[in-house]
């Protein structure tokens, strides 16, 4: 056949195309961390993993007041009571506030939960700095116990002027199944 001399070429092209295929398959998975980075930068979807903000010197902008609302929800099938101590606070940008969230484990089992935050509008999440938050870690809670969990935050004075209300939502998810019984016992206060 006349295409005899082109045969080696075929192999080379096929190899390159297969590499592209593998590369694109990997890219599909690479979209996962890329998406997180994208969300972090743009405030997309109001997700954030912000915890690094220290109490550095910053001015408090007393000319503006922003209403910060708190919403708490428990995931389906999670028998906890979970509520903020106050449903909203008015803060000046730059001013640090502490809000307590109350949780109660209604069951007879020791449990571990994780609170997942979300902010509306998404853009505001870029300016909401949490100095301390129970959502940074998993929250263990012994059977029938309750706890007050603090969340300390401030709004960056750079927050755009058209934002007047920021809503911070926490959804509590049951993580008990993801930890071993021993680890669970270790997390519990010894007085229990």
């Amino acid at each position: 056949m006349s295409e005899q001399p082109t045969r080696p070429d075929n192999t080379r092209i096929v190899r390159r195309l297969l590499l592209t295929v593998i590369g694109m398959f990997a890219f599909g998975f690479a979209l996962v961390p890329l998406y997180d980075v994208f969300c972090d930068i743009t405030g997309f979807n109001g997700r954030f993993t912000d915890g690094q903000a220290a109490a550095n010197t910053r001015s408090v902008d007393t000319s503006r007041t922003i209403n910060v609302q708190f919403i708490t929800r428990v995931n389906q099938g999670m028998p906890w009571d979970f509520a903020p101590e106050v449903t909203s606070v008015r803060v000046h940008p730059g001013e640090t506030k502490v809000v307590n969230f109350l949780a109660k484990n209604r069951t007879g089992k020791n449990m571990v939960a994780q609170a997942i935050p979300s902010v509306a509008p998404g853009e505001a999440s870029l300016y909401l700095n949490k100095v301390e938050c129970f959502c940074f870690n998993q929250q263990p809670l012994a059977a029938g116990d309750n706890v007050a969990m603090p969340m300390q935050f401030y709004l960056d004075p750079e927050i755009p002027a058209d934002i007047h209300t920021v809503t911070l939502s926490y959804t509590m998810y049951d993580m008990t199944e993801n930890v071993t019984p021993d680890a669970l016992a270790a997390l519990m206060p010894t007085t229990n």
Binding site: N75, Q76, G77, M78, P79
Partner: peptide
């Protein structure tokens, strides 16, 4: 019925 079952369509009706 009260708490539902997480990871399924069974809701908490409590």
């Amino acid at each position: 019925v009260v708490n539902g079952k997480s990871g399924t369509a069974m809701q908490a009706f409590g």
